[in-house]
Amino acid sequence: MVRTPGQRAGLSRDAVLAAAREVFAERGTAGLSMRAVAAQLGVAPNALYSHVADKTALVDALLDDRLGALTPPPADAEPLAGLRDVMLATFDLLGRHADLVPLYLARQGARGENARALGAAMTVLLARRGVTGDDAGLVVRALIVHTLGYAALATAEAPLDPPRLRAELEVTLGWLLTGATAPT
């Protein structure tokens, strides 16, 4: 079996993501580059391209990697509770990783495997409430945007009261979900 250059350097995607997390934690968005990650790993920058296509893909992978800490709601959960719970868990996760909130906003969420799994689980719950197709996609987007907005308020340089914001988010998610899943 022929190995790619990144494999010859002894790298894995997990190692690249771990180094990217370290660089990001030390230097922020401005300091996160393929060169900086390669330097952290002690390899040439071209060794990374076997694992991530470019800086945008690296950022997307970092964002999606964090979402891996969330458990998608089970298909048999009460739909509104399951949807609310996953959004509240997302808010809590973002609160623990405040430095990533601007990236989620800039990239308009995450696109990887973990993000897709969460979206698919949410879509199943919405279908049980009669919301399907494009409408389900719109509801998922509205919930994500709403939650990201609250997370941005809670993690800003001069944040509003995070516990109060979480309580407000719980109430407003209920409003959104009730309205979005009401029979028309």
Rank of each mutant, 00 (worst) to 15 (best):
residue 137 G to L: 05
residue 49 Y to I: 06
residue 46 N to P: 06
residue 155 T to G: 02
residue 112 G to M: 03
residue 26 E to D: 13
residue 156 A to L: 11
residue 119 G to P: 09
residue 62 L to H: 01
residue 180 A to D: 10
residue 169 L to I: 06
residue 90 T to V: 05
residue 74 P to S: 14
residue 45 P to F: 03
residue 122 M to P: 08
residue 26 E to R: 15
residue 27 R to C: 06
residue 35 R to M: 11
residue 169 L to N: 10
residue 15 A to E: 10
residue 90 T to Q: 14
residue 56 T to G: 12
residue 60 D to K: 02
residue 64 D to F: 02
residue 49 Y to Q: 00
residue 85 D to A: 15
residue 92 D to V: 10
residue 57 A to V: 04
residue 30 A to T: 13
residue 127 A to S: 10
residue 21 R to H: 07
residue 54 D to E: 11
residue 103 L to R: 08
residue 119 G to S: 07
residue 53 A to F: 09
residue 132 T to E: 15
residue 128 R to G: 00
residue 115 A to V: 02
residue 64 D to S: 03
residue 44 A to Q: 13
residue 136 A to S: 12
residue 125 L to Y: 05
residue 105 L to S: 15
residue 156 A to Y: 10
residue 126 L to S: 04
residue 75 A to H: 11
residue 106 A to K: 13
residue 144 I to W: 15
residue 34 M to G: 09
residue 135 D to I: 14
residue 100 L to D: 02
residue 1 M to Y: 13
residue 6 G to I: 12
residue 179 G to R: 11
residue 171 V to T: 15
residue 55 K to L: 09
residue 53 A to P: 10
residue 130 G to V: 10
residue 7 Q to N: 10
residue 42 G to R: 08
residue 101 V to E: 08
residue 132 T to Q: 14
residue 135 D to R: 15
residue 126 L to P: 10
residue 124 V to H: 01
residue 108 Q to K: 15
residue 114 N to P: 04
residue 101 V to G: 06
residue 115 A to E: 02
residue 66 R to K: 08
residue 142 A to G: 03
residue 166 R to P: 03
residue 66 R to C: 04
residue 119 G to V: 05
residue 178 T to H: 13
residue 131 V to D: 01
residue 180 A to L: 10
residue 167 A to T: 05
residue 107 R to S: 15
residue 28 G to F: 07
residue 38 A to Y: 02
residue 180 A to Q: 01
residue 42 G to D: 05
residue 112 G to F: 01
residue 181 T to C: 08
residue 109 G to M: 11
residue 82 G to E: 11
residue 174 G to T: 11
residue 13 R to K: 07
residue 126 L to K: 09
